[in-house]
Design a binder for these strands. Structure first.
Lengths: 216, 216, 216, 216
DNA sequence: TATGAATGAGCATTCATTCAT
DNA sequence: GATGAATGAATGCTCATTCAT
């Protein structure tokens, strides 16, 4: 095992967390051992503990990274379109893109966000993750308000409950689309993307004043 | 140990799976050991293997049972109401009831159902579970068609995609409601049930011809 | 590894703790691994955990056992003699016998006895160990009082401080005798037993009214 | 790191062993890692191995240093008093002072000294430690002989055995006093120092011709 | 000389599963 | 049929030590 060149710590952390990400996606966090991560990353198991405090920290940093990316995807999606409906669809597809890139964290993100801030022992990454979560909420909130003001979305929408319920619904939709891709292909005779587009459209009607703009 | 002789095999399976169900709900499948199930059920650990091939089979039978119950809940919900909107709300609450009773299987049901029917090694219960899933689909399908025929639901709904997307969305909504109950209470200043009602209503608009009937 | 006959649990516990005792004496508790204990006892490592909750419990039971034996040795020693000096010497030799049989616990016993009875998590054996410790104190106390009343020991002795200081001194003497046996042999040109006898005698003068009865 | 160049090797050894001493006292040798020593000393872990062969050597040098200090304490104690009894008490308190300063080595000194001088692999410090031990023996020997010649100590004392047995007994007494300080406070209703004074006095009678001079 | 980097060997503990009786 | 007994295989984590630079 040739010793590596002097590379910054972040390079090793990236290599390790990347290896972990692959394995976590394949078999889940619980079923991925530090031994396996080490082997996948090409390090000795002990070396993992040079770069990370423990397994939990690897998970936390991965969740944080993915959340940051999600935030970027969502922001970019909204900026890429001007029409409200197009923004909505771009938003949904940004989440889809995220789910496809980080299948594992997609669901975890939901659970992890409830941090016990009383517990002084929590991993700093977790707090940052929570903060990014709040930023994401804000992004969607602004989008909703803009839509209402533009006369596109129903005036009687309750902002916060709408954000949360949409988050849950889109998340559930995408997760089902991915978990059951083959089943959908066989039974619905359409692609996962088609299925999701249909779902996104359907859901749009629940906030829209006038329904979906084009025929899908 | 004074255990009655000649109890039919099913009695023992029921006792064991019931003990397992309790523990799984409390601590999750992964964190429940066969040792604990045996103790809870009042059997020796080895005896568990007389009645079940392995731990996985216990899980499978439990998932099947829960699916059967879900089917009942859904059927009952539809029969308990005559109005379409009321049926819809009853349907949603039936799923909520299921989630609250079987929090653990709720999500699993999504993942586990993709059976490789080519694989001759699969657990028979899993096939039955799949079949119940199909029955559930039919129940919802009939509901949707009835709603369309009654002029309550949009005529342009595509039946199958609608069933699936609704399944995903309601599932996602309920799961978020449960995972983040405290967060919702604190941020939205409302109960989980209130939040979910709002979400159910919102979603109803996406299939309804005229929106929700009453003010909520 | 042929499966053993159905033997009572206590037999296995004895076999394991006995193997552990040997290794603990040879290399110390910290440097004895459960793996080694298992090998020495002829069991699989996992089997150890069938009979003991953890390593700590093995240590605790060993300490307790040795303490019980010490109590017996001391009681027997006192009963075996009628003369006070002879009782004293028998007492010292009982401790020596104990040290030779349980070299490892001899010192540990001193440390372990301070139990935090507030801590509800302590191992039950530790409490019993403490109780035996108290019984041992009583045995020595009665001996001291009897000696004073018989006019053999100084009337101005403070019972409790005398017990404790004698315990410390005899313990220290014996431990030194054992740790440095070869050195003693070479430098003092006498056996460990001779050396200890001299020490016991010397110490006797500090409580005796008239000094040691015979010439040593 | 701005470390001054050309510091003699001994300076680094002192800095490292001093850091180690602090940590060893706080948490014990076994529970102090080389990592912690390095951090405490402000060196890189690898640097420790430039100045010391291994962890054991750090311990050895520390034991040696402490022994040197003990020798000084004992010599000073004897010179500080003229009366024999006072010298004896000063001697005991010198050992107590040593125990309180080097709790960790106090007991170790007993065990470690048995060097296998045939073994060419031993650490040189250990030999020096042994030599200091011999010097300490001589100090006490001279004290004993002086006491005998002064008519204070019994004429029939065998010098060497008395030295050794006193060493063991005082050592044992002090160790018990320290290990069980709280227990002594609670049960004997006196301070550790009071208890030890009583013990020292008691022991004095075993060598003294006439008993302890004052009432304590 | 000083150290950043890496790791082999080890450890206590857990658990699903097997099998002789 | 029921089980007491036993265990192989893991798992997360630690640490003294080595070595190329």
């Amino acid at each position: 095992m040739g010793r590596r060149k002097k590379e910054p710590k972040s390079v090793h952390r990236a290599a390790i967390s990347s290896a972990a990400a692959t394995l976590f996606s394949e078999k889940g966090v619980e079923h991925t051992s530090m031994d396996e991560i080490a082997k996948q990353a090409g390090y000795s198991k002990a070396t993992l503990y040079v770069y990370f405090k423990n397994k939990e920290e690897i998970v936390s940093i991965l969740v944080l990274e993915s959340m940051k990316k999600l935030h970027t995807y969502l922001t970019d999606a909204l900026q890429s379109q001007s029409d409200m409906y197009d923004k909505y669809i771009a938003l949904c597809n940004a989440m889809l893109k995220y789910e496809e890139e980080f299948p594992f964290y997609f669901h975890m993100v939901l659970d992890e966000i409830n941090i016990d801030f009383e517990n002084t022992d929590y991993i700093p990454e977790d707090k940052e993750t929570f903060l990014i979560g709040e930023k994401i909420n804000t992004v969607i909130k602004d989008f909703l308000i803009a839509g209402i003001n533009a006369g596109e979305f129903r005036k009687d929408l309750k902002i916060l409950p709408t954000i949360f319920s949409f988050w849950g619904m889109i998340t559930g939709l995408i997760e089902l689309g991915s978990n059951k891709e083959t089943y959908i292909n066989q039974t619905l005779h359409c692609s996962k993307q088609d299925f999701l587009n249909y779902g996104f459209d359907t859901l749009y009607r629940s906030i829209s004043v006038k329904g979906v703009p084009y025929e899908n």
